[in-house]
Design a protein around this nucleic acid. Sequence first.
DNA 1: CCCTGATTCGC
DNA 2: GCGAATCAGG
Length: 185
Amino acid sequence: MSWTDERVEKLKQLWSEGLSASQIATQLGGVSRNAVIGKVHRLSLPGRAKSGGAPPQSAPRATARNTAPPRAPNFASRVAGRRPAAPPQSTPSAPRTAGATALKQEVEADIAPAARPRSNPDNVVPIMKKVALTELTEMTCKWPVGDPTQDDFYFCGCDAKDNSPYCSYHAKLAYQPVSDRRRAG
DNA sequence: CCCTGATTCGC
DNA sequence: GCGAATCAGG
């Protein structure tokens, strides 16, 4: 790869946006981060404020709107007892729906009866307070709900269990920590 | 050891 | 001009 006008222009843009040399190299493709840094110097572009590892990190930063969920619930793999790595196979849609239903029942069975809304006993989701990222505290469930890129994205926000980022409902959905797996196996 | 940018130097 | 190797720092 050579430094065409287009690539140089993109280099200038990304560099000015604060992306690191390795990130720029990845986006441009075909060049190493050393090549990027070398080119930056040859172009006499302004270097980073402080030499060394000053963390500008101005790259696309996570916000309340685009924060990705820490872990996506994988109903199918949990219920079916399959490893997450198991490919979809040629399985029709039937088992997937059945699996989700099974887990839902399992989860609901573990919830205190008082927590179930009388008017809608089949749906425990409404117990969520639906709070924004900025409303989260150490005592609120941090389970993300919805599409982070959409306006209806929110967090559960109900009371979190002790030493858990989630409420009893969502703690049940979260994966087991690696440490626990190791202890068990 | 991971990462970062800076510099050197053979090509 | 180019970029790998190397260096220095967080």
